[in-house]
Write a protein that binds this DNA or RNA. Structure first.
Length: 230
DNA sequence: ACATTAATTATGT
DNA sequence: ACATAATTAATGT
């Protein structure tokens, strides 16, 4: 599959590189398309490749010994993922599931060292992305320990519309199919509680919730809920 | 303040 | 028609 290098020049990891460097990087890349809801790699797999998400969304997931899923975070397009090498690992620390139809580039893990050594933008972007995700997960740990369910769900939805939101008439909608179950797995609650919360918020005019779809009409009120007002 | 259980209804292929 | 998703009420910790 042939790829236009102009597709990459505006993406953060490549924005500081010249055409020759990009062409070189592209030569070693593999392009792959994934359907929604399939796994790109699984926790514990040998990390033989690293990825750049061109289009779509990736859901980073871990499975408990009882078989329950916990959604750690979502990755928007333009970001690197599966970068176990950057964390000093040779296996993936979590499972990556596509949250929508997805297009991704990937390279053999052996090239990781070369990339970060030779391309300034590549390494700084890596630090940035890794830092963001640590902060993200850090916040989640704090929320889990201190906030109530309603506040956690509000936070989760706010994060989703910030990172993966799309403006539509009447609000901002989450740009991929998301179920009550998904939201419960992100917030450590049940789909029933999420359903009740969304119903209540819909009556209050804060959100509009349909099947596999959530639109935020009044972000400000959600922020108020997320910080706790009772 | 939440989970669990269970019954019921809606929605997409 | 069938499976999956969502709602709702009742009951439990």
């Amino acid at each position: 599959m042939r790829l236009d290098e102009s597709l990459l020049t505006n993406l953060p990891p490549f924005s500081k590189l010249d055409k020759a460097a990009i062409a070189d990087i592209l030569q070693h890349a593999t392009t792959r398309r994934f359907d929604a809801g399939v796994s790109v790699f699984e926790e514990g797999d040998y990390a033989d490749r690293f990825y750049l998400l061109l289009d779509g969304y990736i859901r980073v997931v871990r499975i408990t010994p009882h078989g329950d899923q916990v959604i750690a975070l979502h990755i928007p397009s333009g970001q690197l993922f599966g970068i176990a090498r950057a964390l000093g690992r040779d296996t993936y620390p979590a499972t990556a599931i596509t949250a929508s139809e997805t297009l991704a580039l990937s390279w053999p893990a052996e090239l990781w060292g070369e990339f970060v050594a030779q391309h300034e933008g590549f390494s700084t972007e890596t630090y940035k992305v890794v830092g963001q995700r640590i902060a993200d997960m850090n916040n989640r740990i704090f929320e889990m320990a201190t906030q109530h369910v309603e506040q956690r769900v509000a936070c989760a939805i706010l994060r989703l519309i910030n990172q993966t939101g799309r403006k539509v008439d009447g609000g901002i909608e989450i740009n991929f199919a998301i179920t009550r179950q998904d939201l419960s797995e992100m917030t450590g609650t049940t789909l029933h509680t999420v359903s009740r919360l969304l119903s209540a918020w819909e009556k209050a005019g804060i959100v509009k919730s349909e099947r596999k779809k959530v639109t935020v009409c009044d972000p400000h009120k959600l922020v108020v809920l997320s910080t706790g007002t009772g």
